[in-house]
């Protein structure tokens, strides 16, 4: 069994981009929800753009911060490499390059996602269509995931898909937490105010975790529990601990298949056994922001180490 380095890289990035399309759509949804439930305050879009990692790009293009511009930027602007339309296009370009490693079902799901979304986003999206378009993005990503889960062999090819997906997801959750970390800081002044409740809810909605949180911790939203939930909870599929564990598992499968452990395995071990082993109180003590910056750095080095170890480019 052989897999080209280029193919492994293409799969990894294809799934990173697909994951990103869904994450970005969810953030637009959260931003829109805030706009609808609060007195109109376009400042909130700054943090939405930051959480999506595209604030600087937006600022370079637009002078004013406006809801409709932000939505357009995040969903369909070709100048934004992380807009939903851009990442779906890039995911599909990658899929074309690695076509021979995909099943027909997965390829068609990606290709159809591209065809459908390109059409749905051909023009600026009005408020009335926004929900439908966002639903379409989530649905299309789910189709690809379903086809992947249902038809791909569980071999190294699958491992690279999963590595891409969980790397992107961990990065996204860490970024959301980081952008909102000041909300979670146990500062006494704002606690209990209406503003905070909405802000906390925003965090959970950004990761589709509001329902799960309530099941786990009840109606009361508390910063410590939210942080615990999104950092440590091993049942929450978007938590850092969950993603880190999946990254380790998939790297272990690769080690088993190839009969070799690489430097990537050390990086992922450090992520799981050191970074995430700190209890939540200790994390708050030494600074949530510092922890998250450190964690994001760890994800970045894992990403570049995987690229080197498995010969994506050289």
């Amino acid at each position: 069994m052989t897999t080209l380095g280029k193919t492994a890289g293409g799969l990894y990035w294809m799934f990173r981009y697909l994951e990103r399309s869904e994450n970005t759509a969810r953030m637009v949804e959260v931003g829109q929800r805030i706009a609808l439930t609060r007195s109109s305050d376009d400042d909130e879009w700054a943090s939405v753009l930051q959480a999506a990692g595209t604030y600087d790009g937006y600022r370079a293009k637009h002078d004013e911060l406006r809801r409709d511009l932000a939505i357009d930027w995040m969903l369909r602007d070709a100048d934004n490499p992380s807009s939903v339309l851009s990442v779906v296009t890039t995911a599909r370009d990658n899929a074309r390059v690695v076509r021979t490693a995909l099943t027909r079902e997965v390829w068609e799901a990606v290709n159809e996602a591209y065809i459908t979304l390109k059409q749905a986003m051909a023009r600026r999206i009005g408020d009335r269509e926004l929900q439908d378009v966002l639903r379409l993005v989530r649905q299309r990503a789910a189709f690809v995931r379903g086809a992947t889960h249902g038809t791909m062999l569980r071999n190294d090819v699958y491992d690279f898909c999963r590595l891409g997906m969980f790397t992107e997801r961990a990065d996204c959750t860490a970024r959301i937490l980081d952008v909102k970390y000041f909300v979670l800081l146990p500062a006494s002044s704002a606690v209990g105010s209406r503003l905070d409740d909405i802000q906390w809810e925003t965090i959970l909605r950004s990761v589709s975790g509001i329902g799960a949180y309530r099941m786990r911790f009840g109606q009361q939203l508390r910063p410590r529990e939210i942080a615990e939930f999104l950092i440590h909870d091993r049942t929450m599929p978007r938590s850092l601990a969950f993603c880190a564990r999946k990254l380790r598992e998939n790297l272990d499968y690769l080690a088993e298949d190839y009969g070799a452990r690489m430097h990537s395995h050390e990086v992922v071990a450090d992520m799981n056994d050191k970074k995430l082993a700190q209890p939540i109180d200790a994390i708050f003590q030494s600074g949530l922001h510092e922890f998250l910056v450190d964690f994001q750095g760890c994800i970045a080095s894992l990403s570049s180490q995987v690229e080197i170890d498995y010969r994506f480019y050289r």
Partner: peptide, 15 residues
């Protein structure tokens, strides 16, 4: 993806 290695044509795989 290709290179000449030890007198043979070879492709760069993950291994």
């Amino acid at each position: 993806d290709l290179r000449v290695v030890d007198g043979r044509l070879a492709m760069r795989t993950t291994q």
